[in-house]
Design a protein around this nucleic acid. Structure first.
Lengths: 338, 338
DNA sequence: AAATTCACCGAGAACGTTACCGGTGGATTC
DNA sequence: GAATCCACCGGTAACGTTCTCGGTGAATTT
């Protein structure tokens, strides 16, 4: 049976003083003597008093809860971003309510619709990849709820956003392949319509045209983000008459898929076909040949997003900021001819 | 500026009826005619009414929030368990507040101490590996808060627990190594004192003695759960005069560390030294040689834990249950001589 | 000595919701 | 035709906390 926790009233009653005084003493605000404060604090300890956040939330119209909405948590990138978020939230005494959408737009919508903003101070979102309309987010922002997007941002919504430098990372990755003598570079991309997918595609294309490399529609394949998608994308590329000799993958999981299928076909990864990914998933160091990649500052992105959200919550009329964090090329075996 | 959401009072006022009636209509309970219910529902929709969970939580002394406390989320096992938890919670309209301890006992204690049980219906915990005393959990349980442990359980606390079959998994893994002709089998284990570490150690030892294999103290090394720990454990083993010819690792990450160091020393994994892990982390299929392992039902463990917790919450005087889910041997290259 | 200031405390309302109890008026029963 | 029942609705208190205001007595000023 659930016992009843001691309340502020119990403390007041035990000390024969008023609840107002107890309330003030506990919050250490004003108008209370050092003696009575000590009395109250000791009694609170003795009665194992814990503040009831429902009550405080009700009167202050603010709880210390943040919601985080993610496509999934079972991969390196998102779990690391979340850890960064958590780090900042913890140090500021905020709780995180985590929702995962499984990359399902309907589920995302459903979660948003059922969100109780009376018990939420703000929202941190990376949108689902099948994102249709983003009206539901706009509504929330119009209602005055602080929202920060990260990684997978909704382009046409005016609020704070945090992301890695997708364009330059892709540009650098592609340039690296070119510098290593690969001539026919394909791109296995993410779903169309997602901002960061588009940015990486653009970086890839610009790098190609800058160096006068051929651009072929058939060498660009859009699909999901999983390793399996990487495998089937690679299969498709290999069915072409004019096969590429290198692949830039939108993320490491797809790059791993590409390497796995190439190895199955007994093609020497690196020597015959170069591969480079994006993320710096721990897997990229484990697989052999090891995978070259653009390291994303996932942990930093999480921290920055949460800091931004807290600023947003504290200052009314906070002006939206866009933060772009740089990536870093990490050269391993999969992109070296030797 | 944060706008004010419509309340039950606003609906009542707009319809010129009482708040009690609106409350009943919204909850679809009793004592309200079909006509007025429809009126209320329509008006609620029109005013974009959202229930204030702080208020309901205050009067009903129950919110729809569950807390999950984990050592970390950036690995396959815990992120998958969490996804399972989330799946059940979502289908029952519960929210999950996630805390990560970074495997730090102090932080775990701090989180527990600051938990607001007035806005929490229950607790799902996998304890930190440096766990000292578990008194803080006992206190909570004594206070009547439903708690379910999973994976890393606190042995001496009487509440529901969900785990994989650690003993039999370890027994099977070790037996598999023996069956494949390895004679000197080492174990790189987790930290001492953790229930599942002990179970896996015991399974390993029992398998050895059952088949009359030598048991050597020096072949058993305790340390943390990371890949780096696996690497340094392997280094230690390789400094011994009497080197083992196979290793059973407490988890896949440590097994990967072992493989990496063996490869660095140009030792043929499988042929010269067998390796087997525990978990079935996706990494185990990626690394080469691929890693044999005991597959854990992580997703199922998450689901079961959450179901158990919900039962616990609903039924008062719920009798604690212990659920043990079986693992499955997956044979790959790292444990085959050939 | 009167006036003013100040430190400290308490009473009451409010936040949004639900639970409990009582009160209508119309239909049903005897 | 009176008594009973029932479907429906409203008023009020309560949940635990904070906020606003007013009030005390002592200390300080003039």
């Amino acid at each position: 049976m659930r016992r009843h926790y001691a309340t502020i009233k119990d403390i007041a009653h035990a000390l024969n003083i008023s609840v107002s005084t107890v309330s003030r003493a506990l919050r250490d605000t004003y108008d209370v003597s050092a003696d009575t404060r000590k009395l109250v604090l000791d009694m609170a300890m003795k009665l194992n008093y814990k503040p009831n956040f429902n009550a405080t939330g009700l009167v202050k119209n603010s709880t210390h809860n943040l919601a985080v909405i993610l496509p999934g948590i079972t991969n390196y990138y998102f779990s690391t971003v979340f850890t960064g978020i958590q780090e900042i939230a913890y140090s500021h005494n905020y709780n995180i309510i985590l929702y995962v959408t499984n990359d399902d737009a309907d589920r995302e919508l459903n979660i948003i619709r059922n969100l109780s903003f009376s018990s939420l101070d703000g929202l941190l979102v990376s949108v689902s990849s099948q994102a249709g309309s983003c009206d539901h987010f706009q509504e929330i922002i119009d209602d005055g709820i602080p929202v920060v997007f990260f990684d997978r941002v909704a382009a046409d919504i005016r609020t704070s956003k945090v992301m890695q430098d997708d364009y330059n990372g892709a540009f650098e990755a592609t340039t690296h392949l070119i510098a290593n003598g690969y001539k026919k570079i394909a791109h296995i991309a993410g779903p169309e319509g997602l901002t960061f997918t588009d940015s990486r595609l653009k970086g890839y294309l610009d790098a190609l045209s800058k160096h006068g490399m051929p651009i072929r529609k058939k060498w660009i394949i859009h699909s999901g983000f999983t390793q399996e998608c990487g495998e089937s994308d690679m299969e498709k590329l290999w069915k072409l008459n004019d096969k590429p000799d290198a692949v830039f993958a939108v993320n490491d999981r797809k790059a791993v898929g590409a390497i796995v299928t190439l190895k199955k076909k007994n093609i020497a990864v690196g020597k015959d076909v170069g591969v480079i990914g994006f993320t710096n998933d721990p897997m990229s160091a484990i697989i052999s040949p090891s995978l070259s990649t653009i390291a994303e500052p996932a942990f930093e992105i999480g921290k920055k997003s949460c800091q931004l959200l807290l600023n947003h919550i504290r200052k009314k009329n906070f002006i939206p900021e866009e933060i772009i964090l740089p990536g870093k090329l990490i050269v391993r075996e999969s992109s070296i001819r030797s």
